[in-house]
């Protein structure tokens, strides 16, 4: 009920946008290779399902694997750099630099080095995923409540206990912010990596569609990517609610 009350505004905005779009393409008779109307895109989306099904599935798989690797590396990097401050001072600037290399430039290089297999694609996704996660987790560790930290030290907790029992749970909400950003990035990363040269994937479907002026299919691909992003995002939110439920539970009773 609350979801409906909050959700009707954006949903009606989207519907209105589609209506305007549909009306405009009818009114101005825009050729469909230039800008197809929403109804044409919808038809292609349904009719083309057997054609792009495999592409979609392949992208989903690639995204999940890449996102998982990116998450693991991101968290591992955050933990290492947090526990070893000297290493952090040394490597943090490098980490930022790694994000300044344009993926579009890096991707062809990765293909030269690692071929057309799955490895360069996973590297691309990992590269875009790990950074938001690592930064968010490190910030979370650093912001650990000073009073709680003081208590843990006075109570005789070891460094490992402080990390496991205090810093890690404390950083979880921050970590989830990073995961949400990365979840959407990972879909983009997967599509970009498929442009490099792949046999299947939404990225491939998109390139094929645009080079044959099937603009309706390009839009189908765009909407598929959006839907994938949303689904991943929603999944992370569910995971967050389940993991840090103490937060919602406590807040609810506080008014």
């Amino acid at each position: 009920m609350t979801a409906f009350r909050k959700g009707w505004r954006p949903v009606s905005a989207i519907i209105l946008l589609f209506l305007l779009w549909e009306a405009a393409s009818l009114l101005f008779e825009v050729p469909s290779w230039l800008l197809p109307s929403p109804s044409q895109i919808w038809q292609e989306g349904i009719a083309g399902w057997p054609d792009y099904r495999y592409h979609l599935w392949s992208t989903i798989r690639l995204t999940i694997v890449g996102f998982s690797i990116g998450t693991i590396i991101g968290i591992a990097v955050a933990i290492c750099l947090h526990l070893l401050p000297k290493l952090r001072d040394t490597l943090y600037p490098l980490m930022i630099l790694s994000q300044n290399v344009p993926i579009i430039v890096l991707a062809p290089l990765l293909v030269i080095w690692f071929g057309f297999g799955v490895l360069p694609k996973l590297i691309v996704i990992t590269l875009v995923c790990f950074f938001p996660i690592a930064v968010a987790a490190m910030d979370g560790f650093k912001q650990t409540d000073a009073d709680l930290m003081h208590y843990m030290k006075m109570a005789g907790a070891t460094k490992g206990q402080i990390f496991r029992k205090l810093e890690w749970p404390f950083a979880l909400p921050a970590l989830f912010s990073g995961l949400k950003i990365s979840a959407t990035y990972s879909v983009m990363g997967a599509v970009i990596s498929e442009w490099l040269g792949a046999k299947q994937g939404i990225g491939v479907y998109m390139t094929l569609a645009s080079s044959s002026f099937r603009t309706d299919r390009v839009f189908v691909a765009i909407f598929l990517i959006m839907a994938l992003c949303l689904i991943f995002f929603a999944f992370i939110i569910l995971l967050e609610r389940w993991t840090v439920r103490w937060k919602t539970k406590g807040a609810k009773n506080n008014g």
């Binding site: 009073d147 907790a157 029992k165």
Partner: peptide, 27 residues
């Protein structure tokens, strides 16, 4: 040497993600 005393600070310093039972057993 740490851990030789039991301590209660000014602020309650309970871990917000633990239930009361889990919190009181922390020491």
């Amino acid at each position: 040497k740490r851990g030789a005393i039991s301590y209660m600070p000014q602020s309650s310093s309970l871990l917000p993600w633990r239930t009361i039972l889990e919190n009181v057993m922390l020491g």
